[in-house]
């Protein structure tokens, strides 16, 4: 359906000027400039530049700590996504039952979404701090945050906890859209059709799952910065130092500006990959609906 339009030669451009002014100054220019800086060595205090070719890229990709952070980020994102989507789907399925007080339960289950990653970090830091953390006491295990293998678990739990509400809402919405008739016939048929039920539901949920996969990837890679800064500061021994935290440290703490620019480019290619996936998701969605 083609929409009617107004005829005006200049007005659309005028309407777009504010947006493009912001885009050029704060998005396009900084993006290109970051790209340029990734080929320079830069003085930490004065900002003086020296051309360095691919030096920064060679350095970060031959740095074992950076590679470790790269793998850690992927691992972290995968677990956060898998655990987050699984749990939120379970809860959404519960919430989708026709019982009294559903709205009440829904509110009580999704509210952590409104909290920030930094708050989640503070809460979990308090729960697991080795001196008097409540959950250290009840689990009988003191070193949750001081041991690298368990610190990442705490970070994952906190990250999943904080984003659960967001995922639940989307699953709940899309569960509502599963045609009742299809499910009803499945549930009446009894035991043999559990499989069918699962199959039908999952088929209808897959666009949402794709969408959430993309959003949770972005969340795990970027938004979890506040969580990690407040909870572990990337420690112990870099065991929770994901790429965004690495970038922050190199840029803001150690003033290795050239490295930081190169690391930004790595993150950029990641976003490109995920966005490509998002377009595929959009395609799938059209296919299903």
């Amino acid at each position: 359906m083609k929409q009617s339009t107004f005829d005006n030669k200049y007005l659309p451009y005028i309407l777009l000027i504010p947006t493009f002014f912001i885009l050029v100054v704060f998005l396009f220019y900084p993006a290109i400039e970051t790209f340029r800086l990734s080929f320079f060595k830069i003085h930490p205090w004065t900002g003086a530049e020296k051309f360095a070719g691919f030096y920064n890229f060679v350095k970060i990709f031959t740095n074992r700590d950076y590679l470790r952070s790269f793998i850690l980020s992927a691992f972290f994102a995968l677990i956060v996504i898998a655990a987050g989507l699984f749990l939120s789907l379970l809860i959404a399925l519960l919430l989708n039952q026709k019982i009294k007080g559903m709205r009440f339960y829904r509110s009580l289950l999704i509210w952590p979404y409104a909290l920030s990653p930094a708050i989640a970090g503070a809460l979990f830091n308090f729960l697991f701090n080795p001196a008097n953390g409540v959950l250290c006491y009840f689990t009988g295990f003191r070193t949750w945050l001081t041991n690298g293998n368990t610190a990442i678990i705490v970070v994952i739990i906190a990250a999943v906890w904080k984003n659960l509400g967001y995922n639940i809402i989307f699953y709940l919405t899309s569960l509502r859209n599963v045609p009742g008739a299809a499910l009803e016939s499945a549930s009446i048929d009894g035991a043999g059709s559990v499989k069918k039920f699962i199959y039908i539901t999952f088929a209808f949920l897959s666009p949402t799952t794709f969408f959430l996969f993309v959003m949770n990837t972005i969340y795990a890679y970027f938004a979890s910065f506040g969580l990690i800064d407040v909870l572990t500061e990337g420690g112990p021994s870099g065991s929770t130092k994901i790429l965004i935290y690495y970038l922050y440290k190199d840029f803001f703490v150690h003033s290795k500006i050239g490295y930081a620019a190169a690391e930004s480019l790595v993150l950029f290619s990641l976003v490109v990959g995920v966005t490509a996936l998002q377009f595929r998701t959009a395609g799938k969605k059209v296919h299903y609906q």
């Binding site: 100054v25 998005l27 396009f28 900084p30 400039e33 930081a260 620019a261 930004s264 976003v271």
Partner: peptide
Amino acid sequence: LLPVPVRIVALFDV
């Protein structure tokens, strides 16, 4: 494709 972290180095300069 350009969330803040991707351009933060130069955005900060701007």
